[in-house]
Design a protein around this nucleic acid. Structure first.
Length: 149
DNA sequence: GCCAACGTTGGC
DNA sequence: GCCAACGTTGGC
């Protein structure tokens, strides 16, 4: 089983929102590197749910992959914010996965705190200038973060 | 293939 | 709202 971290703006989908829904489609990823990581995910993989572009950026919970990558329908929907005019049903370059809520953390693990952990220096999240929204997390990094809860 | 211009991300 | 950093686009 692999570990990941994925960013979401809580206004779009928060860990609390996922908790209410139980399950959700993780769509709208429009970066090739992030998409490739989505495609590498397997059912059962777990990921840290990160809240970005909000008053308290940080890891807010844990969730699980329940469906492996499939064509992202929002790319074909002209009404969608994530519509891609160049995508077609036959050639849709974008992928989505389905996820399920596992755990909402009692307190958000704030970005500033994560940056202080020496064991996380290699994590793209804490690196200057990194905007990657889907990234792998090593078992060692996972353990460091889980211990902060 | 280079690179300037532009759009986006995301913390602050 | 600001702005640094990054990714993408498109002319040449």
């Amino acid at each position: 089983m692999a570990y990941w971290l994925m960013k979401s703006e809580p206004d779009e989908l928060s860990i609390e929102g996922l908790g209410r829904l139980g399950e959700a489609r993780w769509d709208g990823v429009r970066n090739y590197q992030a998409r490739n990581f989505l495609r590498a995910m397997n059912v059962g993989d777990e990921f840290f749910f990160y809240h970005s572009s909000c008053p308290q950026p940080g890891i807010a919970g844990i969730a699980r992959i329940i469906r492996a990558a499939y064509p992202d329908p929002t790319a074909l929907d002209p009404q969608s914010h994530y519509y891609d005019a160049k995508a077609t049903a036959d050639k849709n370059p974008w992928s989505a996965v389905d996820v399920a809520h596992v755990q909402t953390l009692p307190r958000v693990l704030e970005l500033g705190r994560l940056k202080q952990q020496s064991g996380l220096a290699e994590l793209p999240l804490v690196q200057k200038g990194s905007r990657l929204s889907v990234m792998p997390v090593t078992p060692e990094q996972w353990a460091v973060i889980v211990a902060l809860r």
